[in-house]
Write a protein that binds this DNA or RNA. Sequence first.
DNA 1: AATGAATGAGAGTTCATTCAT
DNA 2: GATGAATGAACTCTCATTCAT
Lengths: 224, 224, 224, 224
Amino acid sequence: MGQIAQKSRGTDKICSPVRAARGDRRREAIIEVAREVFLSEGYGAASMSTIAAAVGGSKATLYAYFRSKAELFGAVLSNTTEDLGGGRVFGEAPEGPCADLAEAAARLTLIGRRLLAFMCRPETVALYRLVIGEAGRFPELGETFYKAGPQEKIARLSGLIGGCMADGLLRADDPVVAAGHFLSLCRARTHQHLLWGLAPEPSEAQIAADIDSAVRTFLAAYRV
Amino acid sequence: MGQIAQKSRGTDKICSPVRAARGDRRREAIIEVAREVFLSEGYGAASMSTIAAAVGGSKATLYAYFRSKAELFGAVLSNTTEDLGGGRVFGEAPEGPCADLAEAAARLTLIGRRLLAFMCRPETVALYRLVIGEAGRFPELGETFYKAGPQEKIARLSGLIGGCMADGLLRADDPVVAAGHFLSLCRARTHQHLLWGLAPEPSEAQIAADIDSAVRTFLAAYRV
Amino acid sequence: MGQIAQKSRGTDKICSPVRAARGDRRREAIIEVAREVFLSEGYGAASMSTIAAAVGGSKATLYAYFRSKAELFGAVLSNTTEDLGGGRVFGEAPEGPCADLAEAAARLTLIGRRLLAFMCRPETVALYRLVIGEAGRFPELGETFYKAGPQEKIARLSGLIGGCMADGLLRADDPVVAAGHFLSLCRARTHQHLLWGLAPEPSEAQIAADIDSAVRTFLAAYRV
Amino acid sequence: MGQIAQKSRGTDKICSPVRAARGDRRREAIIEVAREVFLSEGYGAASMSTIAAAVGGSKATLYAYFRSKAELFGAVLSNTTEDLGGGRVFGEAPEGPCADLAEAAARLTLIGRRLLAFMCRPETVALYRLVIGEAGRFPELGETFYKAGPQEKIARLSGLIGGCMADGLLRADDPVVAAGHFLSLCRARTHQHLLWGLAPEPSEAQIAADIDSAVRTFLAAYRV
DNA sequence: AATGAATGAGAGTTCATTCAT
DNA sequence: GATGAATGAACTCTCATTCAT
C-alpha cells in the first residue's frame, strides 16, 4: 500500500479561471462521490473503477484531478476533516458563567446530545471505522483525525468544564481529563452498539436517555 | 468482496480418525499463522500467498482446509473469540462481599488494570481495528466480537457492581449501565490514544494512572 | 508421513526439482517466444499480453516465472548473449601458423564469411537494432552486448592477426586496432544496407563478394 | 503501433496567408521541440503530453498541426534530414587536383575528422539510435535516412577518391566501394564505443587518433 | 486557432482460486 | 493429502486522441 499523499491542488493541472469555475465543481463532485465509496467500501476495497462509474466519468478523468488513489483518498479525508470542526457539531452554545448546577447540567445535556447525535450519524460511524481500520497502516491518518475529531471536542468540553469550575460548581484535578471522562460516558452505550454493528442509527429518545445518564453520572462525580 | 463465511469445522473431507487428528493439528497451525497475518495486514491486504508462505505450505493446502479466504478469516476469528473470554482477562478476582468502599475500590482497580492492560496489548488493538474496520461490511462479525468482548466484560463488571450495591456500598439505577460507564472511563485516555495510533503500547504506570482516575471518578459518582 | 510441511523457501518462484524438469522447459519456452516478440516489436512496444498469448498462457503465468517485464527482458538477453559466443559464430577455424599470405587470406576469408553471415541473419539484425535503439536508455545493455558481441569477435580476430604478425606475414602497430579495421571493412556494405532496411537478407554470393573485397583491402594495408 | 506517416506539409487547414505564415512558424517550433523529445526519449516513450508541455501548448494544438503522433514523428524526421546534408558536415573542402599523396592524406584527414566529429555528436548518435531502432518497424524510415546520411557521405568521398585516382595517386576497382571502406574505417573504434554506450562524447584528440589510423590504413591499401 | 476536459483502450501487475499429479 | 502450476478477473495507472468552447 502506498503512503497517503496530501492533496496537491496545483499539479500540472493548475486551475485556470475556466477550470476554477467548471473544474472545481467537478473536483468537488468527485470528492463527494469518492467519499461515499471509500466510506462504504473501505480504502482497500474501493476501486477507482467503481468511483469513476459512480461519478459518471472515466478512470482517466479521476487521474486528471488526482495523481493517485492515495491522493484522492487524502483529498476526501482533508475535505472531510473540515466537516468535523467543533463549530459545526456543537452549534451555538450559551456562553458566559453558569448560575447554578442545573444550568451546568442543561448545558452539558445540550452539548452531549448534539455530540452523540453527530457521532451516531451513519457517515460519522463509517468514517470512524475507516480511520480506525487503517490507522495501523497509515499512522498520520489516525493522528489527523484524532486531532480534528475527539481532541477538538475534548478541548471545547474542557473549556466549558473549566468555566463551571471557575463558577464554583464543579471540581476536578484536570479539566481535560474530566472532559475525556464526559465524552467517554456519552459514548458508553448507544455509540458502542452502533460501532459494533449491533444496532441501526438510534432515535432521539435513545440519545437523550444516554446523555441524561452520562450527565447524571458526570455531575455526581464532579460537582463540588 | 465476499461475505465472510462461518467456520466449517466439520469439513467434507474427514477420512480416518488418524487423519482427523493430524489434519486438525495442521488446521490449528494454519489458523494460528493466518491470525497473525490478518491482524497485521488487515483482511483485504492479507493475501493467501502470504499466509501460505508463512504456514510453510502451498496455497492449495490452504484451500484443502478452508473453502475460501473468507472462510479462513471466519475460522480465525471464531477461534480468536475464545481467547477473549473474561476468565483469561480478569484472572482470579477476589470473590465474596466487600467490607467497605476501600475494598471495592481495590477490586475495581485490580480488574480495571487487567482489563486495560489487555485492551492495550498490540494484538488486541489490531483485532479491535480489524473488527471495527470490517464491521460495516460483515454484520455478524461485529456482533460476535461485541458479545465475546465488551459485553462479556460488562456482564462481569455488573456482577461486581451489583455485589457492592447489595453490600450497601454503591448505588445505581442499573448495574449494567454503571458497568458500561466504568468500562468507558477506563478507556477514556490511553486506550483512545492507542487506537488512533498516537502512542505505542503504554507502560504499567500509565495504565495505573488511567485506572486510578477512572476508579476515583466512578466511585465519586456511584457511591452511596 | 510425519513430515512437517515441505519447505517453500518463500515466494512461489524457487525452482524445486519438479520445477527443474517441467518448469524449466516452460521457462525456456517463454524466453524463446519472448525473444521473438521483443526482437520484432522492440522492448517498449512489446506487451506482456502479446507475449502471453504467443506463449499460449496467461499473463499471470509469465509473472510466475519472471518478476517483471524488465526481468523477462533481461532473461531473454542473457540467454541470447550465450548464442553470440565466438565459438558458435566462428566455428572450428584452422589453428597453427600460416605458411604464407595466401593461407592467411584464406583464413580471414573463411572467418569473415562466417562472421558476416551471422551478422546478417535476421535475428542478429533485429537484436542489433533492439540493443542499439535502447542503449541510450539502458546503459548496461549496450555494454553487455558489446562485450559479448563485437568485442569478443575483435579479440578472436586480433589473435589470428597477431599470429600472422608472428609468422612475419602481417605488420601492424596494434593487432586489436587492425582487427577492428577488418571487422569494419567486413560490415562496410551489405551489412549497412541491411541495418538501414534497404535490403533483405543477402545471398551467399553477396556475402562472399563483400568479404573478398574486405580481405583484399585489409591485406593490401597490413601485409609486410 | 501505427505506421509512421509521411509529412503533410500542405495541411488541409491552411486558411489565410497571414495564418499560413504564423501557423508555419508555430509548426516549425513544434517540430523543433518534438525532435528533442523524440531523440531523447525514443518514439515509443515520448508522449504527446510531454511534447505539448515542452512546446508550451496543449495536446489539442499538436493535433491541429499533425494528424497523429506518427505524422508528427515523420515531420520531425523529414525536417531533420535536411540537417544531415553533406555540405553542412564536410564544410568547405579544398577543391581541385591533389599534388601528391601527402596532400591526399591531408584532405582525407580533414574530411575524416569533420565526419567523425559530426557522427559523434550526441544528437547525431541519438538520431542514429532512433532510426536504427525503429528501422525494422518503419521501412521507409531507414531508407530515407541512409540516403540523406551515409550514402550522401559516401558519394562525396567517392568523388574525392575518384579525383585522386585520376591524379594517379590512388588505385581502386570501384571508388564507391573504396569510399565505403574509408567511412567504415573511420567508424571502427570511437564511434562504435559511443554507439554501444561504452563511452561519452570523445575528445578531439581521440577523434584525431582514430582518423589518423583510418587514413594510414586506407592509404596503405589504396595507394598506387 | 487554441485549449481544457474527457475518455476508451490497453499497459504492467496481483490475487483468489482450481486442478493434475 | 499436498503441491506446483496455471489462470481469469480485477487492480492502478497512462496515453493517443477528440470535442465543446
